[in-house]
Design a protein around this nucleic acid. Structure first.
Lengths: 154, 154
DNA sequence: TATTGTTATACTCTATAACTATA
DNA sequence: TATAGTTATAGAGTATAACAATA
């Protein structure tokens, strides 16, 4: 109360005023906002962001290996093991023998896995539609294009 | 090798093709790219993203309390304790007595803290300039505006 | 020797709950 | 009683290193 409180209240600038100038901070806020919503949209399917992403890649790339999946998801192979374990336990994907190489697995989404992926895809798209309702379709596309150009060099 | 590999190589679509349609995925990729670079830019100052943000808020809001800082950073009060401990140990901020309320602290950046904040601010701005070099100034501003409108409703 | 998948381990970030000292 | 700060603990998420089986 008193001193500190009064000082803050008299101040018309937000507390994070110094941070708002940064693209990184703005990006993080938007990311966390969208992420919190996305988690709720796929929770009913027993999926989390990581398993959602992994299921998507396996569903769209039949017979992908765990190492390739790790590469696609930008995570370590050790992390993929846990994800694949979880998806397999849920009956959404299978680890299949590869004829030519007995070291690796060919991952495939099961029928249930494909259905779950399509359901999850629709749910996330619906929630993004809601979260991005304040932007026109053109603005949404423009936003995606601009985001993809970050770090891409001049 | 063989089957899976061939299938992937023949495919002209990226492995994460199914994910690229989502704003959340696009946002996350951009965020992580920028974040990785940002971490390197403030590492020489002994700062990490969390302490950078906390130092910024304290520097710009003298006599702020820990609870207010938690609110500004969107984290719990328990998390603030660790951040303030770290910044205090580094001699960048101080915990000061509040005359009217013996429960709370009035946080202030030290002279060294203010200098460090200004230095960090300049470094991050320089690195963002580099990471966003592919975008015009108008595009960068437009990007920030669009990001701030996410989740803001129709 | 190199690679695939695996396990064990640890670190970061964050949250929850219970505690203390004040109010 | 409610609030500020604190502590302990736990949970994601991710990374590193060492290992066995296979190439």
């Amino acid at each position: 109360m008193t001193q500190a409180m009064n000082k803050i209240e008299q101040d018309d600038r937000p507390l994070d005023n110094g941070l708002r100038q940064f693209m990184g901070y703005t990006l993080k806020r938007a990311y966390l906002t969208l992420r919190a919503d996305m988690i709720l949209s796929i929770e009913p399917l027993g999926l989390r962001t990581r398993t959602f992403s992994a299921l998507s890649v396996v569903a769209e790339n039949p017979d992908i290996t765990q190492t390739q999946l790790a590469c696609a998801l930008n995570i370590e192979r050790s992390g993929v093991v846990v994800l694949v374990d979880e998806l397999q336990r849920a009956g959404l994907i299978t680890r299949n023998k590869v004829p030519g190489d007995r070291r690796s697995y060919a991952l495939r989404a099961t029928t249930k896995g494909m259905a779950t992926w399509k359901d999850a895809e629709a749910r996330v798209l619906a929630h993004e539609r809601q979260m991005l309702a304040g932007l026109t379709t053109e603005e949404q596309e423009n936003l995606k294009v601009l985001l993809r150009r970050i770090g891409a060099g001049a």
